[in-house]
Simulated scan of single mutants.
Amino acid sequence: MTSRPFTVADVMTRKVVAVEPGAEFKEIVTAMERWKVTALPVVEGEGRVVGVVSEADLLLKEEFHDHRLGLVEQLRNLEATAKAGSRRAKDLMTRPAVTIGPDASLPRAARTMASHRVKRLPVVDDQGVIQGIVSRSDLLKVFLRPDEDLAAEVRRDVVEPLFPLSGARVAVRVDGGVVTLSGEVRDTALVPVATRLARAVEGVVDVRCELTGRTKPQGS
């Protein structure tokens, strides 16, 4: 039976530090410093995410602190100057928040972070209520899986289904997340498939394939 792929729910942090729309500037900064985070979800009601306030949003106040803008420059930087003059989360936050669902795959979460240039994503349910938060470091947790777990999964989900007759002659070794497949198999056409499937196992860093075709006995 093929293992279920890891999802955001498997790696996300369930204890979330968030602020309400009315949170004051200093309150937000204090929360970031206390919990060592660079962004906070802004939630209202029963926990519905309405935005995210980040260090970048807050630093606009410092950026424009001693800099008086002309009218043309103000018009070009309406959002930035508005945030620089604000002091509550509802006016400082970036909206709509970039979020992700708990059932999303880890590659999808990574692509979303990269495309939006953010370091973390609020995880929300179908109603937009916060369930957790997932960060770049959370996505790397799968690479902490023990080598023996990876070896067992590769054998169960890759070797045994692909090589039901010769699988017993295939050795699966994992060292530091690097899988080595060695031994003899009947059907060498499946070797590239085995390599690809082994590399797709969550937590595998790389695959070294040393599989060869079964040597026929002399005289056969």
Rank of each mutant, 00 (worst) to 15 (best):
F143Y: 15
I100T: 08
N77I: 03
P21C: 05
V129E: 14
T112Q: 11
V158A: 06
G70F: 04
V37C: 10
P122I: 08
V205Q: 14
D149M: 12
R48D: 02
E55D: 09
E62Y: 07
T195H: 00
V158I: 10
D126L: 08
G177R: 02
S182Y: 08
G177A: 02
T215M: 03
D149S: 13
E44L: 04
A168E: 11
L181I: 09
K36L: 11
K15A: 14
Q74F: 09
I28D: 00
R214S: 06
L190T: 03
V179S: 05
R169T: 00
A80R: 01
E153V: 11
A194T: 02
Q74I: 04
V49I: 07
R4K: 15
P146I: 00
D126S: 14
G167L: 09
T94Y: 08
V178H: 09
V129H: 15
R76S: 04
V129L: 15
S135K: 05
I100F: 02
T215Y: 07
S166G: 09
T30S: 15
A114C: 01
L165E: 14
R186N: 12
L58Q: 04
A151I: 01
P161S: 12
T212V: 14
D103F: 08
T195M: 06
R155V: 12
K61Q: 05
P21N: 06
D138N: 14
E20G: 15
P122F: 14
A39G: 10
T13Q: 10
R136Q: 14
I28W: 03
S105T: 15
P41F: 03
L144P: 06
A23Y: 09
E62P: 01
S54W: 04
L78E: 12
V49A: 07
E202Y: 12
L150K: 05
E46F: 11
V205K: 15
R95L: 03
G176C: 07
Q131V: 15
A84Y: 01
